[in-house]
Amino acid sequence: MKPILPFLLFALLLGFSCSRQVQRIETDTTIDLSGRWNDTDARLTAAELVTEIMGRPWLERHVSKTGKEPVVIVGMVENKSHEHIEAEVFTKELEKAFIQSGRVRLVQGGEKREQIRRERADQQNNASQSTMKQWGLEMGADYMLQGSINSIMDAYNRKKVIYYQIDMILTDMETNEVVWIGDKKIKKFVKN
């Protein structure tokens, strides 16, 4: 019976030493592990683009011309970089800034809009007449926000330099006039 005890203690020690540790950290903490695109890059991009888009003259120009707040729809973001980068992380921040400022109105697009339309169609059969929502009353967007993500990587031996450029463009839906271009450039030096 006795020789089992040291083995048991050893197994216990091994179990504790390999236990996974998880800790909650602030979402604005910068932790770079691999050097690839990460949450900090997305956050910095969002912050820069929000400041840019809300502080440029296209907004005042539209209000002075029409007397109304501009209506924006978010279009496609092309990821032409060498990594998978989900643009929704920063486009959602832009959308939030539009809504919270109260100066820009936003209309739904994509799959979510399709879902709303499906629900509206369903209401035509199932909802009461007083609560049923009508077709043909959607708000038309004045501008479409589109973007692209590009990257350049230079690597030699165990060192590499990665450059990301995120461009967002706001285009007038009627005239195709580009009214705003914003970008965020990020450069990283990674040494393995």
Partner: peptide, 19 residues
């Protein structure tokens, strides 16, 4: 068209990374 709105379209390329 509807599916492209608000979406990220991947046109990624493979970068030369020795590691």
């Amino acid at each position: 068209h509807a599916a492209s709105l608000g979406a990220t379209v991947d046109k990624t390329y493979e970068a030369h990374d020795p590691i």
